[in-house]
């Protein structure tokens, strides 16, 4: 059973100081699948990713990757585990003081003793996979948002990770780049035989490419299912989210006391 599950989250609870952020989260990420975690901004999605990457320690429960409990690893074990993971940050997080080439080559140089000619070939292959061979001498500041995201994608998969995490990969992209990045995520996952976790609130784009969806709200899992199940879901929250309605279980108004009193009418 666990052999085809590359990561799972068991009864995860987490609180910043006393404020609970995650409560009793259970998720399974089977090998080779593309799983989306969706929800409103601030519902704890990024916190969840940081737990998988080992940057935060859970208050209760655990995260298992490749059968190992992340928060019980020592720092050497954690670093070894992170080499098997890739993470695409919200706006790419390319190193601004290095060229595109050096960005993609970064992990190869840090973690391997490969000769420079081999690194060159590998970088070219990775850049080719995202369709950006020819940009290797540009600096990140010279790239458009969509191109930067694709370079970051090439950097994320530089060492062929088994688990790839995407933090809002679609944020701030134009419709064409959106489709390009979406398809790349799918095809890279399949080509590497990896498992991908996408944290996003771009529902339309992600429903096209993922295998399974978790919906989160206020630190708990509100709904889950395949994209078909989600589209057909009659749950009020999911319906509001999928169709982008203004009012519903998620209210338009921030709780603000009596309106009439605020206007000095009461």
């Amino acid at each position: 059973m666990s052999s085809n599950v590359s990561a799972e989250i068991i009864e995860l609870n987490f609180a910043y100081d006393k404020r609970p952020v995650l409560q009793g989260i259970n998720m399974r990420f089977p090998k080779g699948k593309l799983i989306a975690i969706m929800g409103l901004s601030g519902c704890g999605k990024t916190t969840l990713l940081r737990h998988i990457g080992g940057a935060l320690k859970p208050t209760k429960g655990c995260v298992k990757v490749a059968g190992q409990v992340i928060h019980e690893l020592d720092s050497a074990g954690l670093y070894a585990m992170r080499r098997k993971m890739g993470m695409l940050f919200q706006f790419g997080a390319l190193f601004t003081d290095m060229s595109v080439y050096d960005n993609v080559a970064f992990q190869m140089r840090e973690h391997t003793e490969l000769p420079e000619e081999l690194i060159h070939d590998l970088v070219m292959m990775k850049l080719n996979a995202v369709g950006l061979r020819g940009t290797q001498n540009l600096m990140p500041a010279e790239l458009s948002g969509g191109m930067a995201r694709r370079v970051a994608l090439a950097r994320t998969v530089a060492l062929d990770p088994m688990l790839i995490m995407y933090d809002e990969p679609f944020a701030g992209l134009d419709p064409i780049s959106l489709t390009v990045v979406g398809n790349l995520i799918r095809s890279l996952n399949d080509a590497l035989g990896a498992t991908s976790i996408i944290v996003t609130h771009d529902i339309q784009e992600s429903l096209k490419i993922v295998d399974y969806v978790y919906f989160m709200s206020n630190g708990v899992i509100e709904a889950e299912g395949t994209p078909e199940e989600i589209r057909a879901s009659s749950k009020e929250f999911v319906h509001q989210f999928v169709h982008g309605e203004m009012d519903g279980p998620v209210p338009f108004h921030y709780p603000g006391g009596d309106y009439r009193q605020d206007l000095n009418l009461g």
């Binding site: 990457g53 940057a55 670093y79 070894a80 992170r82 080499r83 993971m85 993470m87 940050f89 919200q90 706006f91 997080a93 390319l94 190193f95 601004t96 970064f106 992990q107 840090e110 973690h111």
Partner: peptide, 10 residues
């Protein structure tokens, strides 16, 4: 997030 990215790259 360049520093977090670097940490995630071990």
């Amino acid at each position: 997030e360049q520093i977090s990215a670097m940490e995630m790259m071990a």
